[in-house]
């Protein structure tokens, strides 16, 4: 499978990652369901991971792939805590609408 590195330009992976990241940002701005916001954050993390792996493979440098490994570790911990907060929020407000959380404004 080494042909991909020879035949596909690195800019393809850069543009793909940027597009996925932009879709994630758009989702965070567009939706109000807190679970979907979380999923869009995961999408952004994954687009960055893809770019790391692409550069790591094209450069022949293993440090990038280990960095992706650590990003996955932190993302797993983040999701566990974040979903606990979400369940707590649902228990208090009976909704996962993020726009209800505006207590700090008043």
């Amino acid at each position: 499978m080494t042909e991909v590195i020879k035949h596909v330009d690195i800019s393809y992976y850069v543009y793909l990652s940027v597009l996925l990241f932009s879709i994630g940002v758009m989702g965070v701005l567009l939706r109000r369901n807190a679970i979907i916001l979380f999923m869009c954050i995961e999408l952004m993390l994954n687009s960055v991971n893809l770019l790391f792996v692409a550069f790591s493979s094209y450069m022949g440098d293993a440090n990038g792939q280990l960095f992706v490994f650590f990003i996955m570790v932190v993302a797993a911990a983040e999701v566990a805590v974040g979903l606990a907060i979400l369940v707590m929020m649902y228990r208090n407000t009976k909704s996962v609408d993020v726009s209800l959380l505006d207590k700090l404004k008043n």
Partner: peptide, 19 residues
């Protein structure tokens, strides 16, 4: 799947299992 074609076999397995 992109990880497989980019020769990142370990991260492919981790991605499937973890994500």
């Amino acid at each position: 799947g992109q990880y497989v074609i980019l020769n990142a076999q370990f991260l492919f397995i981790v991605q499937i299992i973890v994500y």
